[in-house]
Amino acid sequence: MRSCNGREYMGKRVAFIGLGRMGAAIAACVLRSGMELTVWNRTPGKCEPLRAMGASVANTPRQAAADAEVVLTSLMDDQSILDVLQGEQGVLAGLRRAYVHACLTTISPTFANGLARMHAAAGSRYVSAPVLGRPDSAAKAQLVSLLSGDSEAMESVIEVASTYSRAVRVVEGPAGSANSAKLCLNYSVVCLIETIGEAYSLAEASGVNPSLINDFYQEMFAHPALKLYGNKILSRDFHSGDGFSLTGGLKDVTLMLDAARENGVALDIGKVVLDKMRIAIERGLGDSDWSVLTEATRILRTHNLSQPAANTTTSQVSQ
């Protein structure tokens, strides 16, 4: 038994698949808690830092899942999740009956409910477990986890999620409920990012130093992440580092708009944000922090372009 984040943990067996910036930070927290950890990643070299910390490294997703009570996946999108779940060497082939897969990726609620059905058919259990926070927060075990899905599996996932989270919230409803909540919260953040960028651009165009606006933002925004984005957009420092990439953000905003359409809700600001993300990606900024979408406002002003309609393609904007 070890202590981590103020809690005591027994040696639960955990597998972790997907060691990007966020995944690697989360996996390290799980390992430091004293739980037995096996890792797998499509690029094997990303497993080595965790091997040095004491993790086992599997050759396939199936091998990683074979002895795990809980399998965590932190991947990019629907297809990457299916790629590690299905097939002879997939997680479903290795995960024992009644053991759990918890998906940390931001995915659509519809896809999450489909994963729950897939696991039920295979005799395993599924819990959606998306997280709120950036990789630097993950490294400090300061994420917020949202959980929904199989109620009988929830206790095991709460125990594991507590190793990398400052708070774990169970969202009532089917597996997709946590993903719906995550999309709502991320939508709030990305729309605020766009609003900050527009305000700075208007200040610049009016001859006002945007630092003045930022000073007010730093007083208004209590959450460190909002202060961070205010400063990043002001300094135009969009190096991704431990942040969230624009290409990842494009995927999330697309999910938000899809969910809104399925539920008969109009997210008009989200349509504008999506177009600006596409403009920035067209300019080669896809690997930058997602707050770089605010550069599209300057691009449009510099090139004397109108804001594209919601259904305008990136290629049309760039012509």
Score class of each variant (00 low, 15 high):
residue 219 E to V: 09
residue 219 E to T: 05
residue 219 E to W: 06
residue 220 M to Y: 14
residue 220 M to P: 01
residue 221 F to D: 01
residue 221 F to Y: 15
residue 223 H to P: 01
residue 223 H to V: 14
residue 223 H to I: 11
residue 224 P to D: 06
residue 224 P to E: 07
residue 224 P to A: 14
residue 225 A to V: 13
residue 225 A to N: 02
residue 226 L to E: 05
residue 227 K to T: 04
residue 227 K to A: 00
residue 228 L to E: 05
residue 229 Y to V: 07
residue 230 G to K: 10
residue 230 G to W: 04
residue 230 G to Y: 06
residue 230 G to N: 02
residue 231 N to A: 12
residue 231 N to G: 15
residue 232 K to H: 07
residue 232 K to T: 08
residue 232 K to C: 01
residue 232 K to L: 13
residue 232 K to G: 01
residue 233 I to E: 02
residue 234 L to R: 04
residue 234 L to D: 03
residue 235 S to Q: 13
residue 235 S to I: 09
residue 235 S to W: 11
residue 236 R to S: 13
residue 236 R to P: 02
residue 236 R to Q: 15
residue 237 D to C: 10
residue 238 F to D: 04
residue 238 F to C: 03
residue 238 F to W: 07
residue 238 F to Y: 15
residue 239 H to V: 11
residue 239 H to E: 12
residue 239 H to N: 13
residue 240 S to A: 07
residue 241 G to K: 14
residue 241 G to M: 11
residue 242 D to N: 14
residue 242 D to L: 14
residue 242 D to F: 15
residue 243 G to C: 07
residue 243 G to D: 03
residue 244 F to P: 03
residue 244 F to C: 06
residue 245 S to C: 06
residue 245 S to G: 08
residue 245 S to F: 00
residue 245 S to R: 11
residue 246 L to S: 07
residue 246 L to R: 09
residue 247 T to W: 04
residue 247 T to N: 11
residue 247 T to G: 07
residue 248 G to N: 10
residue 249 G to N: 09
residue 249 G to M: 11
residue 250 L to C: 10
residue 250 L to D: 06
residue 251 K to L: 10
residue 251 K to D: 05
residue 252 D to H: 09
residue 252 D to K: 02
residue 252 D to Y: 08
residue 252 D to G: 04
residue 253 V to T: 10
residue 254 T to H: 07
residue 254 T to W: 08
residue 254 T to K: 13
residue 256 M to V: 08
residue 256 M to N: 00
residue 257 L to M: 08
residue 257 L to H: 03
residue 258 D to G: 12
residue 258 D to P: 00
residue 259 A to T: 09
residue 259 A to Q: 05
residue 260 A to R: 05
residue 261 R to W: 07
residue 261 R to E: 13
residue 261 R to S: 14
residue 262 E to P: 02
residue 262 E to C: 09
residue 263 N to L: 12
residue 263 N to F: 03
residue 264 G to R: 09
residue 264 G to E: 09
residue 265 V to K: 10
residue 265 V to I: 15
residue 265 V to W: 06
residue 265 V to Q: 11
residue 266 A to Q: 12
residue 267 L to R: 01
residue 267 L to Q: 08
residue 267 L to H: 12
residue 268 D to F: 08
residue 268 D to T: 15
residue 269 I to F: 02
residue 270 G to K: 03
residue 270 G to C: 00
residue 271 K to C: 00
residue 272 V to Q: 12
residue 272 V to N: 06
residue 273 V to E: 00
residue 273 V to N: 02
residue 273 V to S: 03
residue 274 L to I: 04
residue 275 D to K: 12
residue 277 M to W: 02
residue 277 M to G: 01
residue 278 R to A: 05
residue 278 R to N: 10
residue 279 I to E: 01
residue 279 I to W: 05
residue 279 I to M: 12
residue 279 I to G: 03
residue 280 A to M: 12
residue 280 A to P: 04
residue 280 A to E: 08
residue 281 I to K: 03
residue 281 I to N: 01
residue 281 I to R: 04
residue 281 I to C: 02
residue 281 I to H: 00
residue 282 E to V: 05
residue 283 R to D: 10
residue 283 R to E: 13
residue 284 G to M: 08
residue 284 G to I: 08
residue 285 L to W: 08
residue 285 L to H: 10
residue 285 L to S: 07
residue 286 G to L: 04
residue 287 D to N: 14
residue 287 D to E: 15
